[in-house]
Design a protein around this nucleic acid. Structure first.
Length: 224
DNA sequence: AATCCGGGGTA
DNA sequence: TACCCAGGATT
């Protein structure tokens, strides 16, 4: 018998309200959060953000976009060129090859993405996370940016996942969709990522100054 | 389900 | 020096 975990709607609203409020004052600003960001810029940013600090990507992105402003220019780049230019970000051989495959696919598609999630997910480099981001940003749907940050915050507050892989864990997936299922879904997604990165950190989380520790499972079961 | 990829920042 | 970073593909 697996333990049944009950998630209270009031607890979800507690998290939503407090983090959205916090975000107004302390949310981070990034190029890809700009209103003017194109779909191209959004997708490229997500590719760079994989296993890479947001601040690092933020600094790197402008020069890349200057060199490759759109899918059209990116489609002219060779695989090795892409590997070389993204070297400072790391994961450059694999990620460069995958970015190249993505660029060639969008060259074929004349820079246009399909509207259906299932078809988007067939495009190389469009895994679960980036497809969620595409839904959130482009299709304006209430999809979670369920990365290691959001997973850590949700797990500490509500309880740990059952499976090792975030992407395979039904509890975490369901919970994430529940939490961001509000009108200001995009802002809340960003709020959660920022809060997890700045307060609910991996190492030495700042629990004493946390706005939601009163109902946090991790905080309230810590042995002092 | 496990493993690989990686340079750069941080403690 | 060890650890971590807005995952995806392959085995």
């Amino acid at each position: 018998m697996g333990k049944i975990r009950i998630i209270y709607e009031t607890d979800i609203e507690f998290v939503q309200d407090n983090l959205l409020d916090w975000y107004k004052d302390y949310g981070r600003t990034f190029p890809w959060r700009n209103k003017s960001a194109t779909n191209y810029e959004l997708i490229i940013s997500e590719v760079f953000l994989q296993r890479t600090k947001a601040e690092t990507v933020s600094k790197f992105l402008p020069s890349f976009l200057k060199q490759y402003p759109s899918w059209k220019q990116l489609g002219e780049a060779t695989e090795v060129e892409l590997q070389e230019i993204i070297k400072p970000l790391g994961l450059y051989k694999q990620r460069g090859s995958r970015l190249y495959k993505l660029s060639q696919e969008l060259k074929k598609r004349k820079g246009r993405f399909p509207k259906e999630r299932n078809q988007v997910a067939e495009i190389p480099m469009m895994g679960q996370y980036i497809t969620n981001a595409y839904e959130l940003y482009v299709l304006k749907k209430k999809s979670p940016l369920l990365d290691v940050n959001m997973a850590r915050l949700l797990e500490r507050f509500f309880g740990e996942r059952k499976l090792a892989d975030i992407r395979q864990d039904p509890y975490l997936q369901t919970l994430a969709y529940q939490v961001v299922n509000i009108e200001k879904s995009k802002e809340l997604n960003w709020a959660i990522l920022d809060y997890a990165s700045l307060i609910c950190k991996k190492q030495k989380p700042n629990c004493s100054n946390c706005l939601i520790h009163s109902k946090c499972k991790f905080f309230n079961t810590k042995t002092v």
